[in-house]
Amino acid sequence: MSRGAVWKYGDDVNTDVIFPGRYTYQIMAPEEMARHALEDLDPAFAKGVKPGDVVVAGKNFGCGSSREQAAACLKAAGVQAVVAKSFARIYFRNAINLGLAVLQSEEAAGALDTGDAVDLDLARGEIRSAKGTFRFLPLPASVLGIIEAGGLIEYTKKRLEREQE
């Protein structure tokens, strides 16, 4: 995967600051969602983020509501992965279902800082940076099929097509 720059945040980054509730029930195009990404946490993010960048955070990333835009807006903003010490469970599922990589690594989340350049290698399970190479927890086999298909909609579509044959 390509190289990206780190945007570093703390623990318990919740879905309201990732994608505010005042926009949640408006149906938006991805590029419009991207403009509101992390709006109430870091207003500089949406203006400065570049394709391939990586969000790095502490524990319980994505806690709060089940709103899927909290994953979709980061993907639309070009974020290639979120690296965190841990993820809230609905966020973890939503991200996988939308094809946003969510990587759990206590060490990487602790060591990396805003502006660091990182290379992600999903196949080898590695995050490489000037501060070292970090391993992340491999995703369970049961969800790899969803990611390989490009998200849950594509995965389910193929499954339904097979059933109809």
């Binding site: 089940s66 899927e68 994953a71 609905i90 599922r93 939503n94 279902n97 939308l98 998200g151 849950l152 909609i153 389910t156």
Partner: peptide, 9 residues
């Protein structure tokens, strides 16, 4: 709780 995409599926 689950997400929207998952609910559609």
């Amino acid at each position: 709780g689950i997400g929207r995409t998952e609910t559609a599926c």
